[in-house]
């Protein structure tokens, strides 16, 4: 239950698991950045960005986020990192 002293080197599998979690942590920040890009676009009537382009960009980012998240969750399950705890 208590924190065991972490070993210096990890097995390959746990190492992969931890890097996966690192990626998982970065993902929302990446999403935030990508979705902040529209802030840079010119706005108003004379805007050069059409709504269809905006739709393609924003939903493209969305699709990427979903796929990346799905991939992480798939590999996370395989890595067997203990995420879940059933009622007990």
């Amino acid at each position: 239950m208590s924190e065991r002293r972490s070993p210096l080197f990890l097995e390959r599998q746990s190492y992969r698991g931890r890097r996966l979690v690192d990626f998982l942590r970065i993902l929302p920040l990446l999403g935030g950045l990508l979705w902040a890009v529209p802030l840079l676009w010119p706005t108003g009537e004379e805007s050069t960005v059409t709504t269809s382009e905006a739709i393609i960009y924003i939903f493209g980012v969305w699709l990427f986020m979903v796929l990346a998240s799905a991939a992480v969750s798939f590999f996370l399950r395989r890595s067997g990192l203990s995420v879940e705890r059933k009622d007990g």
Partner: peptide
């Protein structure tokens, strides 16, 4: 969509 009233990117940052 592009031809409509909301056809241009207009957003308050």
């Amino acid at each position: 969509i592009d031809a409509s009233d909301i056809g241009h990117w207009q957003m308050r940052g």
